[in-house]
Amino acid sequence: METFKLTVNGQVKEVTADPGTPLLWVLREDLKMTGTKYGCGIAACGACTVHLGGVPTRSCVVPVALVRNRPILTIEAMADDPVGRVVQDVWVSEDVVQCGYCQSGQIMSAVALLKSTPKPTDKDIEESMGGNLCRCGTYVRIRQAIKTSARQLG
């Protein structure tokens, strides 16, 4: 067990964990931030996506020891993010979610996409969102909501 200092959504947190513990479980179990979801544990579904040093990251495969001093942003911080806020609002107004379990990860990926690609094409959307699984099949609406968000942000 080792102690790590993590900067999560702007706050410094200290956790004591096995260095190999994926960041996902530190967020969920030690920091009680359950908005970031466990879906597969092998980076196949993207439900665990957070922004690590600005990079959309699958927290289920990143050991806490490799986080180092990079700031972590989770879904819980998206309401305070100018892009995140718009994406969340559009997600609601376009009735994107069904079961909702994958949507934290979908939104984290969508925000990362829109931050670097303000006017994404269909291909951009498909490629960037390509690793986020949704079993309810909300893809059609996610695609549309990203386009609407881009328009609103533009």
Binding site: G41, I42, L66
Partner: peptide, 23 residues
């Protein structure tokens, strides 16, 4: 990779042996 699906989305600066992702 691309904006929201980068190599760095999984691959870190060293191997993550506890989860099996090289880096």
């Amino acid at each position: 990779g691309v904006a929201a699906l980068q190599c760095a989305t999984c691959h870190q600066s060293s191997n993550a042996d506890s989860t099996g992702v090289p880096g």
